[in-house]
Amino acid sequence: MSANSLIAARRRDALAAYLFLAPFGLIYITFLVYPLFKGLWISLHDWELAGSYREYIGFLNYEDLWTDTIFWKAVGNTLTFVAMTVPTMTALALVLALAVFGQGRLKGVLRSIFFMSSVFSVSVVTLVWSMVLSADNGLLVPFFHFIGMKPVNFLGHPTLAMPSIALTTLWWGVGLPMALFLAALSQIPGELYEAAELDHASRFTVLRRITLPSIRHTVLLVLVLQIVGQFQIFGQAHLMTQGGPANRTRTLVQYIYETSFRDWQVGYATAMSFGLFLLMLGFTMLQLWLGRKGDE
C-alpha cells in the first residue's frame, strides 16, 4: 500500500470514528457545554426570569454573593448536611452490603428491601418521614408518651431539623451505594478468602487487609457520587422544613431555586450555581487526589 492510500484510509477511519461520536457529541454540547457557558454569561447579567430585562453588570453578582449572609448560611448548612450524610451513607452502605452479601434466601430478601427505598420519589419519602417525625401524631409519639416525655418536634427543632433531614436522606439513598458495594464484593475472587483462611486471618483481618483494599475504588466512586449528590440537596429540605427553622436547613440549591424562581433573579442565582459548582468540583478533586495517593 502506498503512503498516499494509507493516509486516505486513515482519513476514512477518522471520519467514520467522528460520525459514530457525533450523536453523543451533539447531545453533550447542546445539553452540557452550551448551558455551562450560557450560565456563565447569564451570571454576568442582571437577568430577569420573565420578560426581556437583561443588563450586563460584570462581576457584580459575584460581589453581592460575597456579602450575602443567607448565601453563606446556606453554604454552611449544605456543608453540614454533606458532612452528616456522605461518610455515614458510605459506611452504612458498606456495612449493609457486607451483611447481605452472599447466598441465601434471607439475604436476597434483605437486599431487595434495602434497595427498595431508592425507587421512591422525594415527595413520597419526605411525606413518609414527615409523618414518622411529626410531633402531633408521628410514629415516635407513643414512645415519647411511654417514657413520659413531651414529643420532640424534630423538623421544627433548630438542632435536630438538619439531622432529621440527613436521616431521611440516608434511608432514601442507601440502596444504590449498597448495590455498588455488592457488585464490588462479588468481584473479589473467592480464592483470596481461601488463601486468607489458610493464612489464619481473622475475620477482622480479612476485612481490613483483603476486602477493603479490594473494593477501595468503589469506595472512592461512592464517595464522589455522594459528594456530588448530597451537595445538591434540595427536595428534602424544600418539602420537609422549607428551609426552617430560622434558615437552619436552607440549603444552597434551595436558595438558588428561590432566588431564581421566586425572586426572578436568574443572573444572581446562576452566580450562586457557579459557587456550588466550584465547591463540588473542589471536594471531588480532593477526593480523587486522595484516592490516587492511596494507589501509589
Binding site: 480464592e191 483470596l192 481461601e194 488463601a195 483462611e197 489458610l198 493464612d199 483483603i210 483494599p213 479490594s214
Partner: peptide, 21 residues
C-alpha cells in the same frame, strides 16, 4: 476441622496472591 487447622498449604490456579500486598 477448619481448613486453617489441617496443616495444609495450597497453591491456586490463579495464584490467589493478595493484590495490594
Amino acid at each position: 476441622m477448619a481448613a486453617r487447622d489441617r496443616g495444609v498449604a495450597m497453591v491456586f490456579q490463579n495464584y490467589a496472591l493478595y493484590p495490594h500486598m
